[in-house]
Design a protein around this nucleic acid. Structure first.
Lengths: 132, 132
DNA sequence: CGGCATCCGTACAGATACTG
DNA sequence: CAGTATCTGTACGGATGCCG
């Protein structure tokens, strides 16, 4: 492993994290991890997602080759989404981060609370000083 | 490992991915991985980041307990940033995703090119290029 | 059922100028 | 040197309505 990190690599990683780190991609990938799912089922499963955002998310994942979209020309139309092999292979790394978040959630929450407390106090001081 | 994924867990993971998946956090974490660094050094190292975004990124990382900020009351002022233990522990999972991105970058790129070709749609990249 | 088009408010990101 | 403050454009995300 190199001691020095190639900027372009890091940027690619960062870009991909931004891509799948959006509001819904991870949830969708996890939901699809169990198997193929229809649009409506996904919409129900991913609580809070709007139709538009689910569509955009699925399109982006499909574009990246992580999700396969299959249209059955029936009446009414039936569209199924499933992870590709590439998409499946991403579940591992995501779960690595997921495990980290799960294991350290308390620390993060504590750090945030602590930071906000200190920051609010500072803010109040500044405000008071300015008003005085 | 459970077969069924808890929605709240997934949302937490997704939220954290959004947090660190922004434009600069991963780059900063990687840069700080080698050791403490001053603000100016970071700004130079993370090419393209504005002073404001670097400040905001560092504040967010500090708030999450991933980065420690140390002020040396000298003249001129000297501020050093370094990863906390928590921040260090995140490097592994990030590199898991990073490795995946690195190993599959070609596939992703190919999938995108193929998708764009099939759909003949103007995407952000194309549009930007056209707008010059 | 699945999904595109449109409108609209917000949150984010950059540039610039100023401060201790 | 290491920020903060402010202005401004853009991109995101939600709600709604229409279509095959």
């Amino acid at each position: 492993m190199p001691k020095h990190y190639d900027l372009s690599k890091c940027q690619t990683v960062s870009e991909m994290l931004s891509r799948i780190g959006d509001k819904w991609s991870v949830l969708v990938i996890m939901m699809l991890g169990d198997g193929p799912s229809r649009f409506s089922d996904l919409k129900r499963a991913v609580v809070g997602v709007s139709q538009r955002m689910l569509t955009l998310t699925l399109r982006a994942l499909e574009r990246d080759g992580l999700v396969k979209r299959t249209v059955y020309p029936t009446v009414p139309p039936r569209v199924e989404y499933e992870l590709t092999e590439l998409g499946q292979s991403l579940r591992g790394p995501i779960q690595a981060v997921g495990g980290w978040v799960f294991n350290n959630h308390d620390k993060i929450h504590a750090a945030r609370t602590d930071f906000d407390k200190r920051n609010n106090i500072e803010h109040a001081d500044t405000k008071l000083a300015r008003l005085g």
